[in-house]
Design a protein around this nucleic acid. Structure first.
Lengths: 209, 209
DNA sequence: CCACGGAAGAAACTTGCCGTATCTAATGGT
DNA sequence: ACCATTAGATACGGCAAGTTTCTTCCGTGG
């Protein structure tokens, strides 16, 4: 065993801590996440951590941000429905149980650490994913699958919200069936309805036929 | 005044504790909710509480259940859109910040107290609200506002999910604008799209496999 | 090459809260 | 009037957050 490891400093040390924090989140989840465990795993000590992040929530948030960002390339399978299925699946895979326990955990401490909760909110709302959805829809319109449709910000980030909601409630990873349901029972009908709105002005609703 | 007040027992005591717990949630939120505070507020002591509920999550859950249940009467304003606005507003009022911090708080302890998390899930999913939504939609169909439409379970509880999602993210009470957005940008278009699906089998969209 | 200052790391400490155990005294039932 | 319950007070053990103190390393400037 290499006894005396040279002391890490600066970025190297910071990375080691963030990686340890992430690993700890994966292994035990947010509820059992402790600073001591992170310190032990990173082979450092608590004060070193607290010199950089002022509390647990901040460390967790930083560890999350340190992970590779989501892919932002819109899927392009040639059909709207399959594009959506790929997108939803991709989101669901990133927004798995651990991720959601983390979100929910940080949010539950919003009162204690409002700054962190705000940061988290920003990151969740500023979803560049809305752009991905728009690209998918525009392509479908170009192919003539649907009429040209403009998505409101809300409609644009809805896939995110739907998946997160599901993951939080179910507590486990989302099943394929659930994803298909979201696409077929909610998002595709919504897109059809939005397309309709263009032609049919008023709040009236589609004439049957 | 601070005389020896007669000891409460049974239901009276239980109610006092549940009320105190609820008040405490309202005042300090879930994150700062402590059993000691509840005991103090209810003018009793911790063991009395622990004899009835085995942990914090259970007490919080019970306190929630002890509150007056939501109204289940569907609004009937004569128009689909206003019915939906009333419904969403009603949900939003109940699902305010405190409520959501509680949900999120209990969920964040799912690992520690799985039973409570399960109970909470059940209560959230078994939403009798889906029935309310169905009634509203059926009435609109009877009036001829929309074609007859069947809502999947997911679509039925979507109003709930949308509002909860918003309340959790925004961290404060929902604004009227947000409610209008949810109705006009999401739920009404969705209903239109669902109506479409019945008559017009697949507007160029692949059928659900 | 050496000294110095800043940061790493170890350990002990304070505080806050959970959940439990022990004791006492009030209360309702019979 | 007695007795089984159980409210209520107090105190304790345990864990984890966040802090303090002190020692030890190590990069840098002289």
């Amino acid at each position: 065993m290499p006894e005396t490891r040279t002391r890490r400093r600066g970025t190297a040390l910071e990375q080691a801590i963030l990686d340890a924090a992430w690993a700890e989140l994966r292994d035990v989840g947010y509820a059992r996440f402790t600073i001591d465990s992170v310190a032990a795993r990173a082979r450092t000590s608590k004060p070193v951590i607290y010199r950089r992040w002022s509390n647990r929530a901040e460390l967790v948030f930083a560890a999350w941000g340190n992970q590779a960002p989501a892919e932002h390339l819109p899927p392009d399978t040639g059909a709207l429905r399959t594009d959506l299925l790929v997108l939803f699946t991709r989101i669901a895979r990133r927004a798995d149980a651990m991720m959601n326990e983390m979100i929910v955990g940080v949010m539950s401490e919003a009162f204690r650490h409002p700054e962190v909760a705000d940061l988290l909110r920003d990151r969740l709302l500023s979803a560049p994913v809305a752009d991905v959805v728009r690209t998918i829809v525009d392509r479908a319109a170009e192919r003539g699958e649907i009429p040209p449709t403009t998505l409101s910000p809300r409609a644009g980030r809805l896939p995110f919200d739907l998946v997160r909601n599901d993951a939080v409630l179910s507590g486990g990873p989302m099943t394929n069936d659930a994803i298909v349901e979201l696409v077929d029972d909610v998002y595709l009908p919504l897109l059809r309805g939005l397309a309709l709105t263009r032609d049919d002005e008023g709040h009236g609703l589609p004439p049957a036929g």
